[in-house]
Design a binder for these strands. Structure first.
Length: 307
DNA sequence: CGGCTTTGACCGGCGC
DNA sequence: GCGCCGGTCAAAGCCG
């Protein structure tokens, strides 16, 4: 079940798959924004009792990268072209613009293990452009030979005693697996909205059990439910919903930190390209995610709007 | 009774 | 080819 209400967190560290060939905002354009967002987010988060983990935890991040090593090594999310079958299934487009992170192919060479996300290698046959492919194919129906399609993923670490933080969306747990090299199981959740295929994985860091690593895959094509079960909507929702963390540490597909601060998406637009590899054009804003809604967009509960 | 969690089985990708 | 592992399915059970 979702945990008791109450976030009792202490820290949150965002990580995104925002590695990409989509250029990250340059330092100068970001510096001020960084401070701005750090201030802003820090204060907001602290309102909720969340503290942003600082770079001191880079080692954790590295560990995190290891957690997804397998995925990365398999070149899963590497290419969102064509794979980016948005989360909204048949909605056919209602979500398509609400793209996700500029996940994609970071070309930064490194020996580091990768963060969940992309490698730059992908079979060309997969990259047939987005929009033309059906939504994620259920594994059981998946055609033979067709690789699993990955949605862009966005992960962050939260210092919390509860595994599953309220994030404004309703999730149904559909699986739990023991994780290799970790005493803690990994839980798999799926958004309960039938049209939404967003998934999230929740696991604890084996090194620091107080750290919960949450990985979102896909993007919600609907609004959050607000205050689920009397729970408090958290910032997790805000970030998870749009995949545009305001305060983040960015890593490329190899787990190499690209920069710290506001996400590229935030610097340029709320909306991110679905296909960051072949097109850097920003998608049209969708009705669901107003372009200029600000960092937290419209999934921010009313109470948090004030600043 | 509906929605959700639990949990074992199953499947596919990958490395050896 | 085989085994490992991550991810998903689905039946069974629980709970409000």
């Amino acid at each position: 079940m979702e945990d008791k209400e109450g976030l009792d967190p202490a820290g949150t560290e965002f990580k995104s798959d925002s590695s990409s060939s989509w250029t990250l905002a340059g330092p100068d354009s970001v510096s001020d924004s960084i401070n701005y967002f750090f201030d802003r987010e820090s204060s907001i988060l602290s309102e909720f009792g969340w503290n942003i983990l600082q770079l001191d935890h880079a080692d954790e991040i590295e560990r995190f990268g290891e957690l997804d090593r397998t995925d990365a090594s398999r070149g899963l999310a590497g290419n969102f072209s064509g794979s980016q079958s948005q989360s909204c299934g048949a909605a056919g487009g209602s979500c398509s613009g609400a793209a996700s992170n500029p996940v994609g192919s970071a070309e930064v060479p490194t020996s580091n293990p990768s963060v969940s996300s992309s490698s730059s290698e992908d079979p060309p046959e997969k990259s047939t452009g987005f929009g033309g492919k059906p939504p994620e194919i259920p594994s059981k129906v998946r055609k033979k030979g067709q690789k699993r399609i990955r949605q862009p993923r966005f992960a962050f670490m939260t210092k919390s005693e509860v595994d599953h933080l309220e994030d404004g969306y309703r999730w149904r747990k559909y699986g739990q697996k023991a994780v290799k090299n970790s005493p803690f199981p990994r839980s798999y959740y799926r958004c309960t909205n039938s049209k939404c295929t967003v998934k999230k994985r929740v696991e604890r860091s084996s090194e620091d059990p107080t750290i919960v690593i949450t990985t979102y895959e896909g993007q919600h094509c609907h609004h959050s439910v607000g205050f689920p079960r009397g729970g408090l909507i958290s910032h997790e929702a805000a970030f998870a919903g749009q995949f545009t963390p305001g305060v983040s540490q960015f890593y490329n597909s190899q787990g190499v930190q690209l920069h710290k601060g506001i996400s590229p998406s935030t610097t340029q637009s709320q909306q991110l390209p679905i296909e960051v590899r072949e097109s850097r054009a920003l998608p049209e804003p969708t009705s669901q995610l107003p372009k200029d809604e600000g960092l937290l967009g419209d999934i921010v509960p009313p109470g948090m709007r004030k600043t």
